[in-house]
Amino acid sequence: MKLLNASWWKVLCVIFLMYTVIAGFLVEVPHLPILHETIRNLYFHVCMWFSMMFIFTVSLVYSIKYLMKPEEDSDIIASEGVNTGIIFALLGLITGSLWAKYTWGAWWINDPKLNGAAITVLSYFAYVVLRSSIDDEQKKARISAVYNVFAYVMMLVFVMIYPRLSGVDSLHPGNGGNPGFNAYALDYHMRIVFYPAVIGWVLLSAWIASINIRLERIKRNNHN
């Protein structure tokens, strides 16, 4: 917990994100047909999903920890992790949707990756609904931890298996012959912005989560 209260990584986060926003809009990018300048969305959209996965994984770890040894603090970290992850998931959907409007011409299409994202968001909303429907604190913590493990594994399996099914093709960059993230990352200019951007956004997600966690601790202390 010492690490969470240290301030050096928050400074790092701010520096990286300022760099991302400034360099992300100004640095030269490869000129590809259709994509043009929308390729800059890589610095924002992809990072949102990275941050989301990071924070959901932290939440999963603390849910398992809670099941092994029921401590209130593990529950706080797990549940606030989910709440923070949902913010990033929604931002990921919004940035992706805007991008899709300009390149594919539609806000939403029936695509394996998009379905995966939708399922993820829905199953974590279900987590929130489940929590709000149970009154007893310990019961709430235990049952939602069980659900969290269940949902995380199902989500992971879905995201991994589904795009590999025969006959399922995706328009999403990185699939179906479209140039993906690896092809862009080969470009030197994009790489020097993208990697700091990922670190910056992940740090931001950790920061938001840590504030949420501390807030929740204070709330529960006042309550008791």
């Binding site: 829905l122 199953s123 909303f125 489940l130 429907s133 199902m154 298996i161 589904y162």
Partner: peptide, 21 residues
């Protein structure tokens, strides 16, 4: 959902996203 004390609605909310795969 039974332990959660929720009825059929809670059950539907929980199971539908997980059923999709």
């Amino acid at each position: 959902s039974g332990k959660g004390g929720g009825g059929f609605t809670l059950m539907a909310v929980i199971s539908f996203p997980l059923l999709v795969p």
